[in-house]
Computed example of a mutant assay.
Amino acid sequence: MKKVNTTEKNSENLRKRAEKQLKKLDSKDIPLIDESDPIKLIHELQVHQIELEIQNEELLAAKEVAVNEMEKYSDLYNFAPAGYLTLSKEGDIIELNFSTANLLGDDLEKIKNTRFGLYITEDTLVIYNAFLDEVFSSNSKETCEILLTIKGEIDKFVHIEAIVLRDRSHCLLAMTDITDHKMIEDELLQKSKELKEFNKFFIGREFKMIELKKEINDLLNKSGLEKKYMH
């Protein structure tokens, strides 16, 4: 059995709706037709006109839905807690959201079209450049950690993830501030180092005490006296 084409089926449904609507029209709304006029042709024109009106209404409704969805997407993008950017191959910032502007410490419009590398510390810029090259040469998500340098503020550690777009001319990048996490991590490392130093000192002190007790016992033994310390 031959499968009905979807486009043909939609056209057929549209025509049925148009003819149904045409029948509802009052006779006074239908132009007077001279007996010599091709009635069938006029009927077809009337049906076609109603088809166009229906299509126009559906297009307007679809456009309204699309605009509403775009506004929702725009709000989700702009007000997301994570920083979102669109970068070119050269690392220029094409698009960004408010969280990114806040992280970079400047107005959104001033940041747009600037080089992202300008906000990165020299010691982590090498990491970022290698990361960006990897993003545009692969098809998978890439990650790294860099340090942002913000004028008048302390440097910020950020974790970034990026993936190249299908046309490979731009990439999408997500950025999360991990400064607090890094500070806690560094403090834990420092405390661990101090603990190791203390243990080293304490163990050395214990060994010294054992050695001194042994020497005292040896001296007492040589003097014919009873040992003072027991091992």
Results as ranks from 00 to 15, higher is better:
Glu134Pro: 01
Ser27Leu: 08
Tyr128Phe: 15
Asn5Ser: 14
Ala18Asn: 03
Leu96Gln: 00
Ala18Met: 02
Ser27Val: 09
Glu64Arg: 14
Ala162Glu: 09
Glu187Phe: 11
Leu147Ala: 01
Lys63Ala: 14
Leu60Gln: 12
Val126Tyr: 11
Ser99Ala: 15
Asp186Gln: 14
Ile127Phe: 12
Asn113Ala: 09
Gly83Trp: 03
Lys3Phe: 08
Leu85Ile: 09
Glu58Met: 10
Thr100Asp: 04
Glu95Leu: 06
Gln55Val: 05
Asn139Thr: 07
Val65His: 08
Lys89Ile: 11
Lys182Cys: 08
Gly91Ala: 01
Lys89Asn: 12
Ser140Ala: 05
Leu165Ser: 14
Arg15Tyr: 05
Lys213Val: 04
Asp123Gln: 13
Glu206Arg: 10
Ala66His: 06
Val47Trp: 04
Asn10Trp: 06
Gln21Asn: 08
Gln190Pro: 00
Asp92Gln: 10
Gly152Asp: 12
Asn10Thr: 05
Ser138Ala: 13
Lys200Gly: 05
Ala61Met: 10
Glu211Cys: 04
Lys208Thr: 11
Asp167Leu: 04
Tyr119Glu: 03
Phe79Met: 06
Glu57Cys: 00
Tyr119Cys: 09
Lys23Thr: 09
Met70Gln: 13
Val67Met: 10
Thr176Arg: 11
Thr7Ser: 09
Ile54Phe: 02
Lys191Ser: 08
Thr121Asp: 10
Leu96His: 00
Ser223Tyr: 05
Ile54Gly: 01
Asn56Lys: 13
Leu52Pro: 01
Phe201Ile: 06
Arg15Asn: 06
Lys191Thr: 06
Gln55Lys: 15
Lys213Pro: 00
Leu173Pro: 03
Ile54Met: 06
Ser138Gly: 05
His181Pro: 00
Ile216Arg: 05
Val65Arg: 09
Leu103Val: 06
Lys227Asp: 07
Asp107Asn: 14
Lys228Val: 04
Ile54Asn: 01
Glu215Trp: 02
Glu57Asp: 11
Met175Glu: 07
Lys20Tyr: 06
Asn10His: 11
Asn97Lys: 05
Phe98Trp: 02
Glu8Ile: 13
Met183Gln: 15
Thr124Trp: 11
Leu195His: 07
Ile94Leu: 10
Ala61Gly: 02
Arg168Cys: 10
Asn5Ile: 12
Ile54Ala: 05
Ile30Gly: 00
Asn13Met: 08
Asn78Tyr: 08
